[in-house]
Simulated assay, not measured.
Amino acid sequence: MMTNLFSVFDPSSNIMNLSINWMSTFIGLLIIPMSMWLIPSRMTMLWNIITNKLHEEFKLLIGKKMINKGSTCIFISIFSIILYNNFMGLFPYVFTSTSHMIMTLSLALPLWVSFMLFGWTNNSKHMFIHLVPQGTPSMLMPFMVCIETISNIIRPGTLAIRLAANMIAGHLLMTLLGNTGSTMSIYIMPLLIITQILLLTLESAVAIIQSYVFAVLSTLYSSEVN
């Protein structure tokens, strides 16, 4: 039961000890029409075009060394699952799982750890070179190593926080405006409805952009260890 403004972000709502909010990831599967799975419908053709475009772009970002190893598949999969969860959060009373750090960190941290293990194991010299940017004066090299090391360590945190903060900010604003509707004059109500529709449109764009940003940044981080 929602008792305050922030209850919409509480994943503990349940019926018979079955979490409703966290089931949002699976509820969306019921919305997908059966034709999506059975025949090459327009939806599947559109999704194939999107994934092919993403594959071409990620292939350029990763570099020539990893093109033939199917490494773009994992980033397309990450884009897909984040986009899916972001859009599921736009439905009323459905918990946005990507607004919680436990979800976003679960995606960002294993990726970063795998990149670091692969890079330092196979390309140690290349990883050391990245710690000192080209053209750095000799006096500043120790400081640049510290700065680059810290910036490298906080990468999974920045990935996770960026996604969670962007998803929770728009939802919180929509909740704040929605709660003022009961106390608002009937003459101002159309303005509130228009504002909510515009915010919903903005959140739809943010859902796409943030999933794309997460996947692109992950691809760029992987390209640095090759």
Rank of each mutant, 00 (worst) to 15 (best):
W37Y: 09
M116L: 10
L83M: 12
I31Y: 03
L30T: 08
L5Y: 11
P142C: 07
I102G: 11
Y221W: 08
N85M: 04
P33D: 06
Y212I: 07
M16I: 13
M23I: 06
L202V: 08
L140H: 06
L30G: 10
L140D: 14
W22I: 13
M66T: 13
S151L: 14
I15P: 01
F115C: 15
H130I: 09
V206D: 13
I32L: 12
L111K: 00
S114P: 02
V94M: 12
H55T: 08
T183Y: 09
T183H: 10
K64M: 05
M144A: 10
E224W: 07
I154M: 12
M2Y: 10
T25L: 06
F9D: 08
L46S: 05
G63I: 03
F58I: 02
S19L: 12
K53I: 14
L200H: 14
P110V: 01
T121A: 15
T72D: 04
V145R: 08
G178N: 12
I76E: 03
I27H: 06
I161V: 15
I39A: 13
M16E: 13
L29N: 03
M45G: 15
S35H: 09
M23Q: 11
M43T: 11
Y212F: 15
S185V: 00
L191A: 10
N86E: 11
M45H: 15
L109V: 15
R162M: 11
V8D: 06
A160W: 03
M34I: 15
T98E: 14
S71L: 13
F79H: 02
I194N: 03
P137V: 13
N4E: 14
I161F: 15
S222A: 15
A108R: 03
N152H: 03
S138G: 08
L217D: 14
L176D: 00
T195Y: 00
L198E: 02
L131P: 10
I81G: 04
K125P: 06
L202Q: 15
L109W: 12
N123R: 01
V132F: 02
T3P: 00
Q210E: 11
L220H: 02
P142A: 09
G178R: 01
A160C: 08
S151T: 06
T175H: 14
E148M: 13
M34H: 05
K65Q: 13
I188N: 12
I194R: 02
T158K: 12
P142H: 11
V94P: 00
S218K: 04
S124K: 12
N122I: 05
E148V: 10
L109G: 04
T158M: 14
I82H: 06
E203D: 15
F118Q: 07
A164H: 02
T3E: 11
M167Y: 00
L30R: 03
I186Y: 09
L176P: 01
A215C: 01
P40G: 02
I62R: 11
T25P: 00
M101H: 09
L61D: 09
N68W: 06
I78V: 07
L5V: 10
L173Q: 12
F79V: 04
V113Q: 01
L90D: 06
T158D: 08
L105V: 12
L30F: 09
S24N: 08
I74F: 05
